[in-house]
Write a protein that binds this DNA or RNA. Structure first.
Lengths: 166, 166
DNA sequence: TTTAGAATGTCAACAAGGCTGACGTAGTTT
DNA sequence: AAACTACGTCAGCCTTGTTGACATTCTAAA
C-alpha cells in the first residue's frame, strides 16, 4: 500500500500489456540466469542437464535416483545418460541404500563439489547483484510471484526439499 | 521501506541460502511458465522455438529477420529452419522491405495471429493468476528483480522493443 | 561503374538433451 | 514362489541448437 505509482490499488497491473511485459521479462531474465554457468560448462563436455543434476544432488545429498527424476521432470533414460558421465568422471558417487538396497543414494565427490561451487558461485554472483540492485522488498515480491507461477507439484518440490534421510 | 518482516533493512536477503532459494524459484517457475504453451504446441508439429518466433513477430510486426535473430540469440540457420515451416504453413509472411529490398519484414497471417492468441492466452492466464495471487506490489518487485538479472543487451531488447518502421 | 559489404537463404553435418519402447537384474513385499 | 519396485541399458527418434561453406540479391562506397 506504500508504493502507489501507476495504480497499485487498481487492477491495472493485470492488463494484457502488463502481463506481456512479465512474460518477456521471464524470457530475457532466464537467459541471463543460465548464461554464467553455461559459460563455465562449455568446453568441459557438460551441459545444463549436468548442472541441474549436480545442483540438486548438492542440495539434498543422499537423494535417490527416483526423487531426482521427480524434481528434474525428465525420463530415467535421459537422466541416466547424464548421471553415467558424472559417475565416470568421478563427480558423483552412488551408494547402495542402507535399508533398501535397490536404491542408489547420490552424493557429490570432492571433485563434484568443486564444480558445483564454481557453478553456483557464478550463478549466485549474478543473483546477488540483481538482489542488491532491486532491494529486499522487490526480492520478496519476486519470490512470491515465482512461487505462484509454479505448478502445484513443483511448488511442493520447491518448498519441501530437505536432506534425504541416509 | 514499508514491509519490514524478516529483516528487510538488513542484508539477510543476500545470504547464500536466500540466493539459492531464488535460483530454484527461477528453475521451477520457468517450468510452469512454459508448460501451458508447450501443451498446445505438442501434437501441432511446433515447438518452443516456433512459439518464440511467433511471439516476437506479433509483438513487433514488420520486424526484420536480423532483428529477430538479435532478440532470440540463435544462429540464422537455426531460426531459418523454424521460419521456413512457419512460411510453409502460412502462419507468417515475409514482405520485401520498402527502402531496403534485401530485408524481409515479418508479419503474422490471420492464421498465425490465431495461434499466437491461443498460445498467449494460455500463458497469460497463468501469469494473471500468479499476479493476482501475489498482488501489485509483489509484481513490481518481480519485474524489478528480473530486469536486474538480464544481460545489458537483453535489457535493451526488453525495454526498447517497438514497432519497426515499415 | 565496379566492387565491397550487408541481409538473407540454404546445404550438410554434428551435438545435446529430450522422448518412447523394450528388456534385464537386483532386491522387496506379499 | 510371485509380483512389484528401483534402477540400468540398448536402440531409435525428434527438436533445436551449433559450425562451415556457399549463393543471391541488393546497397553503398570508391
Amino acid at each position: 500500500m506504500a508504493d502507489n505509482a501507476s495504480g497499485s490499488d487498481s487492477l491495472l497491473f493485470l492488463t494484457d500489456e502488463q502481463l506481456r511485459k512479465g512474460i518477456e521479462a521471464m524470457f530475457f531474465a532466464y537467459r541471463g540466469f543460465t548464461a554464467d554457468p553455461d559459460r563455465i560448462l562449455e568446453g568441459l563436455d557438460y551441459g545444463r542437464a549436468h548442472h541441474r543434476a549436480i545442483h540438486f544432488i548438492h542440495r539434498a545429498p543422499g537423494m535417490t535416483v527416483s526423487s531426482l527424476l521427480g524434481i528434474l521432470g525428465v525420463t530415467k533414460q535421459s537422466l541416466n545418460r547424464v548421471l553415467r558421465t558424472l559417475f565416470d568422471d568421478g563427480l558423483v558417487e552412488a551408494r547402495v541404500g542402507k535399508t533398501d538396497k535397490r536404491e542408489r543414494r547420490l552424493h557429490l565427490t570432492d571433485k563434484g563439489a568443486a564444480l558445483e561451487r564454481a557453478l553456483s558461485d557464478a550463478q549466485r554472483a549474478r543473483m546477488r547483484a540483481a538482489y542488491r540492485t532491486a532491494g529486499p522488498q522487490a526480492v520478496q515480491g519476486f519470490r512470491t510471484v515465482l512461487e505462484a507461477m509454479m505448478d502445484p507439484e513443483m511448488r511442493r518440490q520447491y518448498q519441501g526439499l530437505r536432506e534425504d534421510s541416509p
